[in-house]
Design a protein around this nucleic acid. Sequence first.
DNA 1: GTAACTGCAAAATATTTGCATCCTT
DNA 2: AAGGATGCAAATATTTTGCAGTTAC
Lengths: 139, 139
Amino acid sequence: MQDPTIDILKRNNLSVTEGRRNILQLFLNHNASALRHSDIESSLHGLDRVTIYRTLQAFTEKGIIHSIPGSDGAARYALCKGGCEQGHHHDDHVHFVCVRCGSTQCLDDVHVPYVRMPEGFEATKVEMVVSGICSKCRK
Amino acid sequence: MQDPTIDILKRNNLSVTEGRRNILQLFLNHNASALRHSDIESSLHGLDRVTIYRTLQAFTEKGIIHSIPGSDGAARYALCKGGCEQGHHHDDHVHFVCVRCGSTQCLDDVHVPYVRMPEGFEATKVEMVVSGICSKCRK
DNA sequence: GTAACTGCAAAATATTTGCATCCTT
DNA sequence: AAGGATGCAAATATTTTGCAGTTAC
């Protein structure tokens, strides 16, 4: 198993296909920033739109990637760094959206602080998205 | 100025029209939870889709309402409680999305905690969205 | 061989733009 | 009267669904 994509797919009981390996490789190459469906589509021409949607869905369910909420109406995804299993995501890190270059990054070292919920509310997931100017654009 | 909707529109230099007053009234009535475009459309039949989009945009720009990030591909909006002016939103409260009833609520009393950004990152906005089961659905 | 995966067509949903008309100020 | 707001048509973008054909195991 020299190729990590094959390894990851097999570990998650997913068939090893060319399209999935390519999508996974894209995520591995873009470790720093999140990818939108359109990013993948333009990088991997020849791969059907629908297949990409279904692959992203499968990867999310398996805990290989996680989705990042955004206000611009397009879903973004990034690799899970560990601790995510079948149906359970444990990505407690903060996401950063740069208003200048438009990239979305996982700040793996910044974890989401605890917040006390009001009486009666049961929290199962907490998302934190910071917008501003990223370190690359500040330079 | 007995009607608050007229007051709000005038204060923000927006023409007082029937459609805008109705949309604003809807937000005033649903103070607790956020509204999607489709919620407004189904409540105010007869009002054009496009007009609703443009009204939501105008209200957001004026600081009357604010948008709430979500992963489901439909924008949500809620009234600003104060401190929001032309182009500057200061809604530092946490939003709660109920996975059972689907509603999005503003937890006005829970403010977003401070998080230190890594070197080089400049934060201008911080969003926090908690998912789980709301107090109404827990009962 | 069988179940899983893919591609194509089509539909559903969300949002934007242009323009002519109407209404608020 | 003038500028802003609305309605309608149409275009664009995003995502989902159905189904037949193909591929992985």
